[in-house]
Every structure is written in structure tokens, then in C-alpha cells.
Design a protein around this nucleic acid. Structure first.
Lengths: 336, 336
DNA sequence: CGCGATTGCGCAATCGTTTGATCATCGGTT
DNA sequence: AACCGATGATCAAACGATTGCGCAATCGCG
């Protein structure tokens, strides 16, 4: 790999001159002739600044880390794409790690933060992690932006959870449903609480009774959805429709409904929050409220850049595009 | 962030002494008392070697890149998990990029290779990329291991494509099918050719007629699967079963069959190569031949480490676990 | 022509780590 | 008592890029 000194030798100038030309330093006083010679020489030897040398001097790596609970979850793929696109657009590269490894004391924690490998971190804490402890451990070592969850001292970006839940619920109400269940996430999860709030608000606003037994707090995974559905369908008067707080859970709701002999959407309508490639191919295809996860990723990186630049930490909601109903085939008017 | 010199000052020794103690240099002659003082001081200030300084001196970053065509594809998530696990186990971190950006001249190409950001690359070329041009461009700049496809001068790992196709086909033959279609990948794709070979071998071995019109070469995506199914089902004597070369294509086959009024599995059995979270939740749930993608990822990194260590480039097939039939509900004996 | 300002470029320090070479000290041997 | 070989630890030179500062040469102007 060609070095600065190789270019310098070939162009017959000093390394400092080359550095200034190539980095486009506006304050540099160099003749246009020299600039041209340097550029030519650089192109000829295929020069690219060595990453390590640069990082050492500038105390900056142009690397950002994306840390997610589960790399195989379909929902993270859109987020990942957004983060990657924005990172590339800003001249950075993206490093991927698991939340599990990123706890204080985990193998990644010191490697990323302690060794100074990254300029910033976009983190989605795993459910059940202690956000305060993490914030404390991260401290001032690197700018941090969290996804879906605010933690003190760090920036955060969220999607409009309450609004999405409200849209989902309104769709069912418009179809004529009056007894609607909510297959919710863990009560410890802020996003789960926001979604439940949105659901309740829509229900109340429509003048429907809000029975506490109609909202469950099982979690976002498929098995959680199954448990939620089992709980809901075991009631004396089971709901005619359910809002699933997560598309993965919705798949579980579908499976459990089928197992208990409920036909969807005839006997039970199901609408999910989040869309994913999977939702299109379930049976019946799931009606969803699509969340702007790609934009969430892009926004997270943009915010990270801001706090890295010294701007005060902020908390942002991604409003555009707004949560949108994607009608497929899992909802219908209630049976008479 | 604490530096070597901070530790040295605190322990009352020189930086070189600290470096030797902390890196566990066996040839270093230092008293046990000093070693202990150094270790204590390092722990007290929370020392971690600065990444850039280290990388500069050692000409090694302990970063490997995983480059895939499409980060949102469900099949890559297992691969990603395997690569990440093996990378972490080897003390490395994983960088994720898209094949699209990794073409010679693309934004990532120079950033990763030219700037020396990575010690090696695990690459799945996108369909239609020119592997030779890529190999040429990568040259000696970094060890390279490709997935699913051999390219000259680089290591490669593959899964047993022919065997998997054979297992899928044998399953249908055992059910009594005699006219079996193959919804294949692009003919330019080596893995697609291997799968077609396995299919044909099983068909021939069973003494069934191998009509050329029964194998299509549309591609691995869902739309491709739809096209394949349309082609197959338009025949005067449509097949009673089809092997889909890819689970995503299989989803398309399912959709097209439904659209044309074929009930699966009554009128048409479908078995897919590859398993994914999605396959479990289609309707009917897809019978698949599971491929060892997680192990593929781990093996790729292991091989990468070998060629980085100077061992000759090798081509490896991941045989363990062997492709296994996962029976769900998309296959049945042919209708009489 | 003389002087200050400007232009064009190079010197050398710096970032943090690793490592071959060097040096002082000390116990043990002849 | 002089010397030798370990032993314990330090010095200093890299690795490659950036950048403040200094030094000539040239230019403009009176």
C-alpha cells in the first residue's frame, strides 16, 4: 500500500505538501502546478491514507457501531439498512455487534469503547437490560444514541408508538369491532407502554369499555404472542379483534388462534404493529401498521453525528413517514 | 482514556515495561513484583490499549468485514450470526457492508481495502457481479473468502448444494411423485447450477424422465419463484411437485400456485432449499431442507484466519450438520 | 533600490504502541 | 579480586498521517 512518502517522492515534494493537497486544506499555500503534480502522483500509485495513521493523529476513526439485541430478527434488518446507508453517506463504516456482548464487562464493551475503535454507538438495549448502568458505564467515552428507549445522558430516537397503536386500533373500530384485545409487550419496556397507551386512548375515545383483562403484557416474540392470544381467547367473552404490539407476536397470535379453532379474520381480526417481510407471507397475510424503521436508522446516525459534534443530546421521534396501515387479509368486520 | 504512559507513571516504570507486562511477552525479563505493580496500576486507571496506536504499529486491525448483497434478506441473518460469533471468539470485531458498495470503484472498496481498515473480508458476491474482476481488484490487499462461489486466488466456503437438492427431490419421490419441477436460480450462479445438478441426479437415479421444460432458471427471489411456478404450471401436464432452489422463491411458488387455483399440498407439493424464520409461518408452512448457514459463517471466518496466517487458500464445503429435511405441511403424496 | 508583505514549501513534533538494542546491577565462579 | 552471565529495566526508533512554525524567494510599492 502506497504511503504519503511514496507520493511525495514521486511528485518531488515533501510529505506535508502532499498531505495538504490531498486533504484539501483551504489555508494551504501551494501552487496549482504542485497541486496537480501531487494529485497525479497520488492517482498513479493508488494512494489512500492509511486508516491507522490517520485515526491515531486525528483521534477519530469514522466508524460507528450498531448494537442490536438479535441480528436475526427481521425487524432489525430495516434498521440496519438505514444505519448503514446514513453511515456510508457520512463517510463512515458500520460495525455490527450484539447487545448481549455489549454489556459492561462483556467482550465488546471494552473492545469498542475502551480501545477507541468507534466514534459513536447506536444502541438498542435488549429488553431487561439496565439502561442506567449502561449509561453510567459508557459515560463520556463515546457519543451514544439509543433506539426505542431514552436513557439519561444519551441521545435517543423513537418511532411514534402511541400513534401507531392508535391507527391499528382505529382500523378495527372502523370495521365495527367493539371488544378489542391488546397483545402487548413487556411492561418494563417503554415502547410497550407507549403502544398500550395509544391503544387505550383510541378505545376510550371511541367510547368503548376498557376492560383491564383485554390487555396483556407478554412480550414481543412469537411465543409471547401465542401466550397473549391464549389468555385473550380463554375469556368468557373473547375479543373479536386483537392489536398485536409487534409483528412477531402477531404471528404467534395467528398460530394460537388457528390452534384454538378461531378462523382469521372470520372469528378474529388481527392487526400488527410493524411490518416485515414475514408479514406478507403468513396465512392470512397480516394487516400491519408500518413503522419508519429505515428512517429510524438514518435519524439515529444523524443524531449521533450531532452529539459527536458537541451539540447537546436530544431525543427525537421519527414522524416521517407516519405510521401507515398496510391492509392485507387478517382483518374483517366482526361476525354478527 | 488512559494511555500506556499513564500506567507507567503510576507504577513508576517505563512504558516499555508496561507494554511488555500487559502484552504478556514471554521473553520479557521483569520481576514478579514489577509485573504486579503494573497490573494493579493498569486496572486502577482502566487501561485499554489504544486501537489506532496498536493498529499502526502492528499493521493489523482485528477487524473483519462481512459483505453481503442484501442486509435485509432473511437468509443472511444466520450467516451474519455465524460470522459475528466466530469473529468475537477470535478477538475481532465485525464490520458489515453491502456487496453493491463493494465493487471496485464503489465507496466501500477503497475505504476498506485501500485504507487498510480490515484484516480480511468475507464476501458473498451479488448475483451478476464479475468475480474475476473483483478478485483482480482485491489482489493482495487483504485475504478474501467468498461464500457460495469460488473465485480464483481467494478462499471459499460453500454448503452442499447438490446434496440438499437431492434430499429435497428424494423426499418428493418417496412420496410417490413422478413429475417434479425445479424452480431454479439464475444459470449464471454456481450454487444454482449445483442445485440443479443434484435435482437431476436424484430424478435420473429414480428412473424418472428428465424433461428439460421441468427445470426453470428464474432466480432466487420471491418474484422469480412466482415466474417459475407460472412457467411450470402452464405446461400441458404440470408437475405434481416442485423443488424450489431457494426458500424465498418457494414463497413465490406458493403465492403463484394459490393464484392459479392450485391447492398446496393437495394439487402441488412444494419443498424448499434453505430454511428461514419465514418458512415456518407461510401457509401452508413450508417443508424445507435446512442448510448449515450459521456454520457457514463460522467456517468462513476460520478459513479467513488461515489464509491471513499465510496458509494456502482453500475451498471448503460445510458438511456438518448435513442438509436436513424439515417436514412441515407443504408436501403430500400426489393426488390420484 | 529597499523594505514589508505575501507566496510556496519543508522541518519536525505529535498521536500511542511495540520491540530490538542497550545498560546497570548483582550473584556466582575461578 | 577480577570477570562473566543472568537478570531487570530503560532508550529510542519505528508505524503513517497531520499541522504549527519557520525559512526562502518573489512581488508590490514608494
Amino acid at each position: 500500500m502506497a504511503k504519503l512518502s511514496d507520493v511525495a517522492a514521486r511528485a518531488g515534494v515533501s510529505v506535508s505538501a502532499v498531505s495538504r493537497v490531498l486533504s484539501g486544506d483551504p489555508a494551504a499555500r501551494l501552487s496549482e502546478a504542485t497541486r496537480e503534480r501531487v494529485r497525479r502522483a497520488a492517482a498513479e500509485v493508488g494512494y489512500h491514507p492509511n486508516f491507522a495513521g490517520r485515526a491515531l493523529k486525528l483521534a477519530r476513526t469514522d466508524v460507528i457501531a450498531l448494537v442490536v439485541p438479535d441480528v436475526t430478527n427481521a425487524l432489525f434488518t430495516e434498521l440496519t439498512r438505514g444505519v448503514e446507508d446514513e453511515a456510508v453517506a457520512r463517510g463512515c463504516v458500520m460495525l455490527l455487534a450484539r447487545s448481549e456482548d455489549m454489556q459492561p464487562g462483556g467482550p465488546m464493551f471494552d473492545r469498542l469503547l475502551g480501545e477507541g475503535r468507534v466514534d459513536g454507538i447506536v444502541l438498542q438495549p435488549r429488553d431487561g437490560a439496565d439502561p442506567a448502568a449502561l449509561a453510567e458505564a459508557v459515560g463520556e467515552r463515546a457519543p451514544l444514541v439509543t433506539i426505542h428507549q431514552e436513557i439519561p445522558g444519551a441521545g435517543s430516537v423513537v418511532v411514534p408508538d402511541a400513534l401507531a397503536a392508535r391507527r391499528a386500533t382505529e382500523h378495527l373500530i372502523a370495521l365495527g369491532h367493539r371488544r378489542i384485545g391488546f397483545a402487548g409487550g413487556l411492561s418494563a419496556s417503554p415502547s410497550a407502554r407507549r403502544r398500550a397507551d395509544g391503544f387505550l386512548a383510541a378505545v376510550l375515545e371511541a367510547g368503548l369499555p376498557a376492560e383491564p383483562g383485554l390487555v396483556t403484557w407478554r412480550g414481543y416474540r412469537e411465543a409471547d404472542g401465542r401466550a397473549s392470544a391464549a389468555e385473550l381467547l380463554a375469556r368468557r367473552e373473547p375479543p373479536t379483534a386483537v392489536v398485536a404490539a409487534n409483528v412477531n407476536a402477531a404471528v404467534g397470535v395467528l398460530a394460537q388462534a388457528r390452534a384454538q379453532g378461531f378462523a382469521v379474520p372470520r372469528d378474529l381480526s388481527v392487526v400488527a404493529i410493524h411490518d416485515a417481510w414475514t408479514a406478507e407471507h403468513t396465512w392470512p397475510p397480516l394487516t400491519c401498521v408500518r413503522m419508519p424503521l429505515y428512517e429510524l436508522g438514518r435519524t439515529a446516525v444523524a443524531l449521533l453525528a450531532e452529539v459527536a459534534a458537541g451539540r447537546p443530546v436530544a431525543h427525537r421521534a421519527v414522524e416521517d413517514p407516519a405510521p401507515a396501515l398496510v391492509e392485507r387479509a387478517s382483518t374483517a368486520p366482526p361476525a354478527r
